[in-house]
Each structure stands twice: as C-alpha cells, then as structure tokens.
Design a binder for these strands. Structure first.
Lengths: 239, 239, 239, 239
DNA sequence: AATGAATGAGTATTCATTCAT
DNA sequence: AATGAATGAATACTCATTCAT
C-alpha cells in the first residue's frame, strides 16, 4: 500500500531524525541507542538493520553535512563581480580591490551582505548538525578535523565573491596570514558559534530572534567594513 | 616517608590532571573512570575517596576555571585609562571615545593590544579546560550555560578598560546591540575557538606557533581598529 | 523461465550445501542463519520457508548421514566369504577363523583390505558431515549418541564379512570385549578421526593425499593382521 | 582473614571450573557467560574482572592443558630401557628392536603397558578439558591445531621409551610412515576418543568402568603386540 | 518461491560505584 | 590513604524468527 511504501523509508528517516536531535542535545557518547529507538519509535534492532553500529549513524550525519556545504550555491555573487570587472567598476590590484566609485563599493558590499544572509540561514537551519560536528571535532577522534573541514568548505563558498575572482585574475595574489585568520577564526567561526549557541545565548540576552539575526548580520558587516578604506578593500596589510 | 608525605597531595592532583587531559580529549561521557585511574596511576577506588562521583570531578574543574577568569588582572589598563581621562587625553562622549590626538589614540590602542595579549595567553594556557567547558556547554546539561558565563567573565575583564571606565563616567551609556554582539561572538568567541582548535588548526595550516599567535593578535587588532574613526572610537553605530 | 525452473530446486540445495560447509567449519552454534543465507545466496527468510528452524537443518543433515551409512554395500565381501566356507577354504571355530591354507587367508585379507578401501573412501567423501556429527556428539544434546550410532552402523558394515558370517553360522559365538573395543575405538574411530582431521593433519605432516591414504590403509592392515596367527584369525584372546 | 585469603583465589577458580564443565558439555559457542556466572556463583561482571572476554577463558584452558601434557613424566620407562641396553638385554637394530630373550621382551612390554596405564589415567582425569580441546579443534579457529599439537606432545611422552631411545642410539633411524600413522591415528587418537566419549559409550555398552578400562588397555596392548615378531619389535615394515 | 523489513529475547561486555580490609 | 575484589544496572549489539507482500 501507499502507506507502506511510504513508511518503508520513514523508519530510517525517523532514526536519523532522532539521532540528530539526541546527538545534538546530549552528544554522541551521551546518547543511548535505546533512546534513539524510543525517540524514533522503532525497534532497537532495526537500527542495526540500517546501520552497522552507533558510530555509523554519526558518520553518516557528519558526511552528509560535509558533502552538503559544498552545494551552497554561490554563483550569484560571483556573476555580479565578474560583471563589475567587465563594467570597469571593480579593479583587482596588487594588495586591494579598487572600486570605481562609492556606488560600486556599496553594490559590492550589498552583494556580500546578501550572501552572508544566506550562509547565516544555512547555519541556523542546520544548527543541530553543526552542533554535533562541533562537539565531535572537540574530541580526539576520526572526526576531529571535520569542523575545520566544514569551515573551509563554508569559507570556499564565502570567499567565492572575493577570493575566487581574485584568483582567476591573479593566481599568485599573496593573501596575508591576517586575512586568512580573520576569515577563519572570525567570520565563519563566529557564524557557527552563533548558530550553535543560539538558543543558549538567546535565553540569556533576551533578544528576539529577528533582533539577534540583525545584530549578527550587522556585526558581520562591521567586520567586512573593517577592510574598507576609501573606495578600496584592503587585502594585504601585513607589516 | 618523604615519598608518602609528598604523594599524599600528589594523588589528588594526578587525578585532576588526568581528568583534564582525558575530558578534554574524549569528553566527559567518553572518558571512563578506569582510564582516569590508569592515567593518574592511582587505584580506581581512590578516586571515590577524593570525589563523590565522576561528575564531581567535572564540576570541580568547571567551577575552577569559572572562578579563575575573574581573577584576570585588568587593573593596569584601567589605571592608564583613568590617567588619560585625568590628563585630558581621553574624553568620553555620547556615542564615542574621543582622543585628544593621534598619540593618545595610539597609546590607548597599544594598551588594548597589550591586554589582548594577556587574554590570549590565558586562553592558550587553559585551553584544555576551556575545551572541556565548550564540550559540556554544547550539551543540554547543568553546565550548558557555563561557556557563555565564562565568556561573559572574560568579556568583563576585556571590557574593563573601555566599558567599565565608561560606566563609571556615565552609567546610562547606551551600548549598541552590534557592539555587544561583536564583543561576544567575535572577540572572545574567536579567541576561545582559537585556543580550543589550536592544535587541530595548526596541523592543517602548517604555521609555526609564533606565527599563529601573531596572526591572531593582528586579527584582533584589525577588529579593534574597525571601531576607530579619526581620533575616535565609535561605540554606537546602530541605524 | 529455464533459470527459474532450475533454481527452484537449487535454492534448497544451496541452503543445505552452505549449512554443511558452515556447520563443519564453525559448528552449529557458531554458525549464523545470516551466514547460511549469504553463503547460499538466498534470502534469509527463504530458509524458514524450507526449514522450520535452524535446528531442523542440522537434524536433516545428521539423519541423512545416519541413514546413509547403512546403505554401504557390503554384500560383495559377504558373498565371497560364504563362498569360501562352502568351498571348505574357511572354517569357523570356537575362538577363531581357520583357513585351509595361506592362499585362503591371503584371499580373505585382500577382501578385507578391499573393503577398508571402500569405507575409507566413504569417510573421506563425507568428512564434512562426519565432522558435524562428531562436533554435535561432543555436546550434551539430542545428537550426543549420533556419532556412536554412526560408528556402530559403520561397524555393522565393516563387520559384515567377519561377524555377520560368524553369527549366521553360530549365533552364540562369544566375541571378546577386546575385540569389540578394538573394533570400536581403533578401527572405525581411527578412520573417522583420519577423515575429520585430514586437512589439519596434512598441513602439518606435509604428506601427499595418496601417501596419507596408503599409510592409513597400511595401518589398518597392520591392525587386522594383529589378529592373524598362522592360518587363523584369533577372535577370542581374553584371559 | 584466612577465609578471605582463601576465597580470593576461589572466585577465579570457580569461574574456571564452571567454564570447564559448561564448555565440555555445551561447547564454547553453546555456553552463555551468564551460565558460567551462575554455575560459578559469581557476579557476571567479575568474570570480566579476571578475563578479558569469554574467549580468554577458553584460551587459558587450552593453553593450560597444552603446557600440561609435556610435564607427563616419562623418565621411569626411559631409565629401564637404557638399563636394558646397558645390560645387553636390548639391542637396537636397523629396522627393529631386538631382545636377548623372551623375558627381556616381556619386561619391555610390561614397562610399555605400565606407561600406557599412566597416559590413560591422564586422559581420563582430564577428559573434560580434552573434550573442549577436541571440539575447538574441529572448528576453523585459532585452536584448530591444538588437538594435533596435544597428541604430538602426548606422543612425545609415549614414544619416549621406544623412539627416544632409538634416536639416542641412531639419529637417522628411518621410521616408516606406517609406524607414524599408527602412532598418531590409532594409539593416542584412540585413547583420546576413549576418554572423550567415555560416558556416552559406557551408557550404551553397559560395561562397568573397570571393565572398560581393562578392555581399553588390552586393546592397546594388542596393538603394541602387533609389532612384535619373535623376540623383535618391528619398526620398519613399509614395502 | 521469494524478499525487505521488522522484532523479542537475548548476549557479551561495560561501567560507575561500593565494600572490606 | 589506599587497594583488590565485587556488583547492579546498564549498554551496544546479535540473532533466530516472523511478517507483509
């Protein structure tokens, strides 16, 4: 019957859903297979019918989100940047991006902001999985590099508009360590921490969801703007 | 015997040390009391002589570091700021800190930088404990607010030079949400993530310890400087 | 389809074949129904279509071989013995078989040897099943008497030429305990152990298959010959 | 206290005892750790305090008996043989042992018989362990060679009087495959099977314990005697 | 005849904790 | 202060068997 065809896939989905919920709330080690079975409303043995062992569930979840980030569509910004270069509104120089005028810079920054929006949404929508990713990356396990891998992928998406364009123009462009660090430990790390500690922090600061979101986006923008000087975006400042 | 007098205090210390190491590597749930006993080279039952149960060890570690942050000495910066105000080199205004001249601003910023140095050191030296703090805060447990509490305390220390001085001058100074967010999710969160993922990240990026440290400090400075405009530090920018 | 018609009978056969292989390698308790299904390349549930339960497979295998021994054709030797008595070349006495001359004895012994050949072949060809029989007989189970039953049947076949002929001539012929023991614990038991530990022993002693076979047959002959004295075969030697 | 010192070792002994009993009755795979705990009257977890896992119990049992055989004292026979050679009553020849007279042969055979007695006792006293050894050797496991190893060790003991003496006199003495086979598949294998199937067989044949024992020893002697020809023991008969 | 999914009752093993000394 | 032994309650995982189709 329809119902059965449907429920055939459902059981495994329920197991995954319950695992996401429980792993994110109690950590992998803190979650009992029993609890997953109960939460998913399936027989415990069925979990082992679909997964080799408890860890295989975790692996699948983490692989899933790792494969998943890369699909973050970034083309729309990239296009506009290429357009700006072709238009002569943006010029890539040795140590900076030079914009023809303030309007061009504003246009660029609004694209960036738009993109940050997307990434923040993504992080918020997947915050349970990211929480799992984070917790597991804090352990000395085979998943210890996963968060960094994830951030790198996220960064690849985020950097597209700027870096990838630069690279296309000039493969040898010397990015400063500073810039790399900022991109790593500030921008994506902050977004991830925002998503992961969202509930906890909200309960304490008392801000509404939309206010928190806005504040975060403003903060990201402030950070972006810290690279702006006149009509340029400075990429290379190391002494 | 000497050995006994000596080891009397040592045993408990070894248990704590082993717990810090293991909890930070495998998480609380992932660590076995057996392993602690082995790593500490004590009889397993002795752990229960010193601690009520496994959780009591964790509690003590987390309390320890929470109490510990507040003792971060911050007075030296504070003094210099007060001095600047008295000297007339620094003037606190409605939405900004105004400096008499570039030299005054430079002086202030170097104090800040100096202070960031201290905090980074602290975070690095305690990174195992902070890692535990972080992991446990990611779970729905009684410790879930501990990391935020910790960051707040760290923030209090960090803000001392600026905020506390401001507050003393004007209790009603309206700090923007932006500013709060930046202070929370970027500045201390980034430092903490830096400390916590230090080894993992270093293995991947291949930078030397000192290079990583410098890059991080530069990044923090870049962030601080993003509030600088002319001879002012803008604190209130929300639209 | 052809394939279906064909595989219809095949499936059950494959299950049996896989069971023989696996039971003989891992024992009944050590074999999983899953493994049988995989080895037989059938769906696990299909096994329960053909067999009530796992034990039913074992029962069938053991019944099969138990029924099977009795069909060992022994008539050909029997005939020749009867012939020898009728010819006056063999005479059954109180405690021995007396042969008219050395040629008669030789003829008799060669028949025996011929027969041992057959039994050895049988044991070798069925060594997997016998291995199962042996393993199960070593447990306190309903099959614990099966090996002895099997050996008795084998013995009946083996004894046919001598004993059965004797019995037909003289039902009260008093066989010594010695003889019984030898027949039981030496002759068939040794052959069975030879078959069952064949691979294991060969890997260690390094003899070729035919050399092992010859050596075994020679050993059996040596044993048979130990009853030979002059032109007699002594059956009753107990003090 | 005394009692405690005593019971300290007792628990582990009880576990071993229960394991021997259960493994020999139900096989390794057929025995539940639960059952061992119950039979040994210890907490199940205690089993894991003394043994890494269920298999470690088996390993210890099998190692124990393997180490154990080699200690079978065989010297007494050896001495008497040396004595016979020195006395000139026994002479080792190319293909046989030659005795000075019938009395010498009788003396030798009685020593052998005496020795067989010992081995039979040993096998009977350890029949539970040997049963386990046998069962496990029938599986494709790491213990599959253990029985043959055991038999070899037993053989070394058994061969001492004859073979070792021969070897001492003439290292190149060519033992026939026959002889080796007989020694392997008949003599020790039969004794082992006797011990292992003792209860089962007795229930069927109805003989008393002492009668069975006597019959077995007689059978062994018959076998030994099959090598006797005149005042010689023939060792090399291969065609 | 065949199969993918599902399940109840186990099954080996673990683990925090306690006890006796 | 220290320890070897002991334990109850889990805990991950298994397995023979059944069900629905």
């Amino acid at each position: 019957m329809e119902k059965n065809h449907f429920s055939r896939e459902e059981a495994k989905e329920r197991i995954i859903g319950a695992s996401v919920k429980l792993f994110s709330e109690k950590g992998f080690d803190g979650t009992r297979v029993n609890e997953i079975a109960e939460a998913a409303d399936v027989n415990k043995a069925l979990i082992y019918y679909y997964f080799d062992n408890k860890e295989a569930i975790l692996d699948q979840l983490l692989n899933q989100i790792l494969n998943n980030v890369t699909s973050l569509s970034t083309t729309f910004v990239q296009k506009s940047i290429r357009q700006m270069i072709q238009d002569g509104r943006l010029c890539i120089m040795k140590d900076r991006l030079h914009f023809a005028n303030e309007a061009a810079l504003e246009n660029f920054l609004s694209h960036i902001q738009n993109f940050n929006n997307q990434i923040l949404d993504y992080a918020m929508n997947n915050r349970k999985l990211i929480r799992i990713l984070m917790t597991e990356s804090l352990k000395e396990s085979k998943h210890k590099n996963d968060l960094i891998q994830f951030i790198k992928e996220l960064g690849k998406a985020a950097e597209n508009p700027i870096i990838r364009t630069i690279r296309e123009a000039n493969a040898d462009f010397p990015l400063s360590n500073n810039f790399i660090f900022l991109r790593f430990f500030f921008h994506p790390v902050s977004i991830i921490n925002f998503a992961v500690y969202y509930e906890t922090y909200q309960k304490i600061c008392g801000l509404s969801e939309s206010k928190m979101r806005t504040a975060m986006l403003n903060s990201i923008r402030t950070l972006s703007n810290s690279f702006v000087s006149g009509n340029d975006i400075i990429l290379q400042t190391e002494a």
